[in-house]
Write a protein that binds this DNA or RNA. Structure first.
Lengths: 349, 349
DNA sequence: TTGTACGCGTTATCAG
DNA sequence: CTGATAACGCGTACAA
C-alpha cells in the first residue's frame, strides 16, 4: 500500500524547490508565501510526514522520556505514571515505559540503556538502591530523576516521600481515638518502602513514649496474605490482641480485614485498621479503609517537572535537587470516620 | 562530565582499525579475534554505546511499539498493558505509551503520528470507532492492531471481547440461583463497551424468555455514583425491586453495594450483584464481587502476539485477522459463592 | 579479514 | 529569500 516513503527530496521535486526550502517550511522559518503554498500542497498531495528518526539524528533530541518502575501494575507507580504522562505530553515528549520486574539488573540495564540515546531523560523509581545504581546515576549520559529516598549527597535529582511523618500521622490519629496497643505489619525491610516504614513506626512510637511490643509487629510481603497471616498470629498467639493495626500498604490491610471478619471482630470497634498509599482499594473495601497517602501522584508530577527543567536547559548544570512530598491521612470508616467515595472510570471492551 | 560522545570513529581511531570493523564487532559479524579484542577494549575504555537513533535511521526500524488507550488508569487497559509490556520486551521492543483522554481527536493524532516513524507498530484500544478511525487504519504506514470490536470487514487486525456471551454467563448464573427480576446498570450506550453490553443484556434476557423491565434498566456513567443512583431509583421508585443486578463494570457494582448497604438490604440474600471486568476492586469489596471477566489480560497478550507476527515479516501481507477472547465468570460472595483473594503486590516509597 | 565510500532523511551553514 | 552541500552516527556494498 505504501511505496517508498516520501522525503524532503520527493517534496522538493514535486514542488520544484530545493530541499532546504522544504525543511524551512516545516520548521516555520521565513519563506516566500508562494513557496510555502507550493510545498504544503505537494506535501499534502503525497502525504508527506517528516521522519522523526532523521530529525533526531540531526538534532540529537528524541523528544522521548523514559519512566522505569518495578511493576506498573502497582497502584503507587500507576498513580505516578498518570501524572507524569500528561505533563510530558504537554511539553511535547513521548513516554517510554519500562516495567523492570523485581530484578535489580534490569534497572541497571535501563540506566545503561540511556547511553543508546533513545530518550532525552529518565524518571526512575528503584525498589532498592545499590552502589551500582549510584555509579550509574553519576555517569548517566542524560538527566535522571529518582523517585524514592536517596542518601543526602546523591548525584541526581530526587523526589521522596516522607514515610516517617506519614506513619506519625497514623499513629497520632489512632492515639486520638484512644488506642494504645498499635500493631504494625510491614513488607521486606530491605526494600526502600519497607525499611522507611519500619523506621517510621518505631520512631513514632518512641516519640509518643509508647513501647514497641514485638508480638504486635509482623514482617512479610506487601500482599494480602501477609496481612491475614499477621492478624491470625496476633489473634491466636496468646498475647493480648492489638486495638489498632497499622499496615504498610492497603493490600496488607485488606488481608487484616479479612481475618478480623472471619474472627468475628468488629472494625473499628474492636480493632481499628489503617493502610498506606491510599490506593483505589482503600475506598473499595468494607469498611472503607483509612489510609496514609504518601502523595504518589504529586511525586510523579514533581519528578516530571524537575526533569523538564533540566531538559529545557541541559547546560544549566544545576546542583542535584531534593524534593520531599508531604503525606496526609485519608480518614475512612476503618477507624471510625466517614465512608469514602471513589471516582468514576469508564469500562472498556 | 561527558565530552562529545564517542562514535564508531572514536573507537576506530582508538583501536587502530576502520569504522567498518567497529560496526562488525558490534553486530556479531565475522572479525579476526584480535580485532575484536582491540575494539571491545577501546569501547570499554571510552564507554562507547551504539547510538540507537543513527541505527534506526539506517535500518528503518525503531524497535519501539506504541500502545494507545484512553486512560491508562482504567484497570482494564492496565491489565492489557501488563501483558503487552513483557511480550514486547522479550521480543526486543520498547513500549511507547499514549494516554489520549476521552478526546477522539487525540486518538486520530496518534494514528497519524505513526507517519513520523517513531514506532514500528501500534496497538490501540479506541473508546469509540468512527469513520475517521477506519480511514486512518486503512492508510496506516505501520502495522496496527485494534483491541475492541470492529466491523467485520475492517482493514486491520482485531482482538475483541465477547460481551454478549459474558452477559449471558452472568444471566445464566443468576437464573441458576433462582433470580428472575434481573436489573441492569450500564454506561453510555454510544461507547464500544456500553453498546455491546446493552445488546448483550437484552439478547440474553430474550433468549431466556424473560421480559426486560425498563424500570430495572439504568444508563449513566461507568462510575460508582451511577451505581448508587441506579439502585436508589430502583429502591424508591415504587416498582418491585430487583432480586439481582448486573452492572456494566465493577465500579458501578460498588456503587450498587453502597446503596444496598445503606438501605439495610443483604447481599446476596435480598439482591445478588454482578460486576464486569473482574478488576482488583472486585476482590477488595465486601462482599467480594462476582464479576464477568472479559479477558483483558489475554486480549492484551493476543494483540501483542499479532503485532509481533506482522513485525517479524512486514511483507507477508496477511489478510486482517480477528481474534475473539472468551469471557468467563468469576464467582464470589456477592452472588453466594466463595470469597475471592487478591494477589500480592509490593508497596513503593 | 579489512578498509573506503556512500546513503539513510533531516537540519544548518554559507553563498548567491 | 533560495539553493547546494556538509554534517548527524551507523551499516554495508564493494574493492582490496
Amino acid at each position: 500500500m505504501a511505496r517508498s516513503n516520501p522525503t524532503v527530496i520527493t517534496i522538493a521535486e514535486e514542488a520544484g524547490v530545493s530541499i532546504a526550502s522544504v525543511s524551512r517550511v516545516f520548521n516555520g522559518q521565513p519563506v516566500r508565501e508562494e513557496t510555502r503554498i507550493r510545498v504544503m500542497a505537494a506535501a499534502e498531495r503525497v502525504g508527506y510526514v517528516p521522519n522523526a528518526v532523521a530529525r533526531s539524528l540531526k538534532s540529537s533530541r528524541t523528544d522521548q522520556v523514559a519512566f522505569a518502575v518495578e511493576d506498573i501494575g502497582n497502584p503507587v507507580y500507576l498513580a505516578m505514571l498518570r501524572q507524569i504522562q500528561p505533563v510530558l505530553k504537554e511539553a511535547g515528549y513521548r513516554l517510554v515505559l519500562h516495567s523492570t520486574g523485581a530484578d535489580t539488573d534490569e534497572e541497571i540495564e535501563v540506566l545503561r540503556g540511556l547511553g543508546q540515546r533513545y530518550a532525552d531523560g529518565l524518571i526512575i523509581s528503584p525498589i532498592r538502591v545499590t552502589e551500582r545504581h549510584l555509579a550509574e546515576f553519576r555517569k548517566a549520559p542524560a538527566p535522571v530523576v529518582v523517585i524514592g529516598s536517596l542518601s543526602e549527597d546523591s548525584p541526581v535529582d530526587n523526589v521522596r516521600a516522607d514515610s516517617r511523618t506519614g506513619v506519625e500521622l497514623a499513629v497520632d490519629h489512632l492515639l486520638g481515638l484512644g488506642r494504645r496497643r498499635i500493631g504494625f505489619v510491614d513488607g521486606p525491610l530491605d526494600t526502600v518502602p519497607g525499611g522507611a516504614r519500619d523506621e517510621g513506626y518505631r520512631a513514632a512510637m518512641a516519640r509518643r513514649g509508647l513501647p514497641v511490643d514485638e508480638d504486635l509487629v509482623h514482617v512479610g510481603g506487601f500482599d494480602r496474605a501477609t496481612g491475614a497471616a499477621a492478624m491470625r498470629r496476633m489473634l491466636h498467639g496468646g498475647a493480648p490482641i492489638p486495638d489498632a493495626l497499622l499496615c504498610a500498604n492497603d493490600l496488607i490491610a485488606l488481608g487484616v480485614l479479612d481475618e478480623l471478619r472471619s474472627a468475628g471482630l468488629a472494625v473499628p470497634h474492636d480493632v481499628a485498621v489503617v493502610g498506606m498509599d491510599d490506593t483505589d482499594l482503600a475506598a473499595a473495601s468494607w469498611p472503607a479503609l483509612t489510609s496514609v497517602s504518601l502523595g504518589s501522584a504529586e511525586r510523579g508530577r514533581r519528578a516530571a517537572a524537575l526533569l523538564l527543567e533540566r531538559l529545557a536547559d541541559p547546560d544549566a548544570l544545576l546542583a542535584p535537587r531534593v524534593v520531599t512530598v508531604a503525606p496526609h491521612l485519608v480518614v475512612r470508616a476503618s477507624t471510625g470516620g466517614e465512608h469514602g467515595t471513589a471516582d468514576g472510570r469508564p469500562a472498556a471492551d
